[in-house]
Computed example of a mutant assay.
Amino acid sequence: MAVTKNITRYVCDRCGASAYLPDRDPRSSEWHPVQRVTSDGALMDLLLCSACHKNYRSLAVQQDGEYNRWMIPTAGDKEEQV
């Protein structure tokens, strides 16, 4: 019976995909740690597979654009403050 030491199990926090990979395996680059701050300020640490990370990046780009547009003051903002 073969024994392999120093193996890490990767599990995607979104879809549940998993892989057991030996240390320094090049496939470990297919797993992406992500930190996200929720709307109430809580920090979440996630691990995503490549497919879910691709979807997450699309979502993050969209949300970044919405946030950047929101940061530009408009005339209506000043009326709301009065």
Rank of each mutant, 00 (worst) to 15 (best):
H32N: 14
Y20G: 01
Y56N: 10
R24V: 02
E66H: 08
G16P: 05
V34R: 12
H32A: 01
D23F: 06
D13F: 06
L48V: 09
Q81V: 10
L46D: 11
Y20H: 10
L47E: 11
V61E: 15
L21H: 04
A2G: 02
P73F: 05
W70S: 13
W70A: 14
T38S: 15
E79D: 08
A75S: 10
C52M: 03
C15F: 06
K54A: 14
L47I: 08
Q62S: 13
A17E: 11
R9V: 13
R27G: 09
E80C: 03
K54Y: 09
G41I: 03
R27M: 07
D64K: 11
R27E: 14
V11S: 09
L47D: 05
C12G: 04
P26G: 00
Y67W: 12
M71G: 01
Q63Y: 08
N68A: 13
Q81G: 00
A19Q: 11
P73T: 04
K54T: 15
C49R: 06
L21K: 07
D25E: 11
L43Y: 02
S50F: 02
L59F: 10
D45H: 11
I7L: 13
G41D: 05
V3I: 14
Q62N: 11
R14M: 03
V3E: 12
Q63D: 10
Q81W: 09
G41N: 05
G16D: 04
G16Y: 08
T38I: 08
T4F: 03
W31I: 08
C49W: 07
E30H: 10
P73L: 05
V82C: 01
R24Q: 11
W31D: 01
V34A: 04
L59R: 11
P73G: 04
S29P: 00
T74E: 09
T8P: 00
E79P: 00
D25C: 07
K78M: 08
H32Y: 14
G41S: 02
S39V: 11
R27Q: 13
T38P: 04
A17K: 12
D25N: 15
P33D: 09
C49G: 05
N68I: 05
H32K: 15
R14K: 15
D45P: 00
T38M: 06
N6L: 08
T8M: 08
A19H: 02
I72E: 11
Y56M: 06
T8H: 09
V34L: 11
D45N: 13
E80H: 09
R69C: 04
G41Y: 03
S28R: 15
D77V: 07
R36T: 12
S28E: 13
D45E: 14
Y10D: 00
L47G: 04
Y56T: 00
V11R: 14
G76N: 10
A19V: 02
A60P: 01
G41M: 05
L48K: 04
